[in-house]
């Protein structure tokens, strides 16, 4: 720490000593923190699928509520970015709204619901239906980054399994699942092999969205704030859902249901249960554009 040599009087209080160092923070976090997060993200991009530990800061949103995704967004955001934030595919979900206003309030950047206007897309549990390209960074919020959590709890053994690419117990669990149930019953967060090396937890995105990750044009970053790790799937990377070659990977089937608002059957639909069961697109912005087209 150096003194401001231009000052005429020697500082005598702590406040004077640090006065010249306080700056308005852009994007909530101080520069050092953001730089640290970016360094971790660069490591993650260099080693696709590898969970990079980072000094996760406490955010205004609680752990488990997107603090990791938020840190990744804040570390990446620049003045020219435009941000879209969705939860379950919905821009108006209350948590998405809260996260979005935190980003815009602390940066002054534009917010949008349209994928083609956005540069950063922070999402919980969905990949937007619209195509994304090299101009997009998709930032996924991750509750549990460890894909092997179901078969092992000891953290040292987990580290060894990833380090040695010893995923045999994962394959055995898929075998057992298929034998016991006739299908592989993993619902969301389906384990995938990235760049033929690391198995990753694809956060709880539905199987519907998994094929979008394979050889994508866009960069996907995963932020786990509570578990203090980030990982990445760079563009044009192989992402293969784990399954046997004669057991096809199954995305969610809706048995021919269509969205009651826009009529689509090519998007991920969620249901409103009840006597008159109805389905609608989870991606509300996509659905709305389709209706208005």
């Amino acid at each position: 720490m150096t003194l401001d040599t231009a000052s005429h009087t020697s500082p005598t209080t702590i406040a004077q000593l640090v006065g010249h160092r306080t700056t308005e923070t852009f994007a909530l976090l101080d520069e050092e923190s953001k730089r640290e997060i970016r360094r971790a993200l660069l490591q993650a991009v260099c080693i696709p699928g590898y969970q990079v530990p980072f000094g996760s800061r406490e955010m205004p949103v609680a752990r488990g509520w997107g603090s990791g995704g938020l840190q990744v967004t804040l570390a990446c955001v620049g003045v020219d970015d435009a941000v879209k934030v969705i939860d379950q595919g919905d821009d108006e979900g209350v948590n998405a709204v809260n996260l979005r206003r935190l980003v815009t309030m602390s940066t002054g950047i534009d917010e949008t619901t349209e994928v083609d206007e956005a540069t950063l897309i922070q999402s919980r549990h969905r990949i937007p239906e619209d195509d994304m390209n090299e101009n997009h960074i998709l930032i996924l919020q991750v509750p549990v980054p460890e894909p092997l959590r179901g078969i092992e709890r000891d953290i040292r053994e987990l580290a060894r399994m990833h380090a040695e690419a010893d995923y045999s117990r994962m394959w055995v669990s898929l075998y057992e699942d298929k034998v016991r149930n006739g299908v592989i019953t993993q619902s969301t967060g389906y384990p995938c092999l990235v760049a033929s090396r690391y198995i990753v937890a694809t956060t709880p995105i539905p199987r519907w969205d998994i094929p979008r990750l394979h050889q994508s044009k866009f960069l996907t970053l995963f932020g786990a704030g509570r578990e203090k790790r980030v990982y990445a799937i760079p563009p044009y990377t192989d992402v293969e859902p784990l399954t046997f070659e004669d057991v096809p990977f199954e995305v969610e089937s809706a048995d021919g249901a269509t969205c009651r608002l826009c009529g689509s059957s090519e998007s991920f639909l969620v249901e409103t249960p009840g006597k008159q069961e109805s389905w609608s697109c989870s991606d509300t912005a996509w659905c709305r554009r389709r209706r208005n087209a």
Binding site: W65, Q88, D90, N95, S187, T188, P204, P206, E252
Partner: peptide, 12 residues
């Protein structure tokens, strides 16, 4: 966080 919407995962 369990209070957050989980309808996509539940549907799956």
């Amino acid at each position: 966080h369990l209070k957050l919407p989980h309808y996509v995962t539940f549907r799956s």
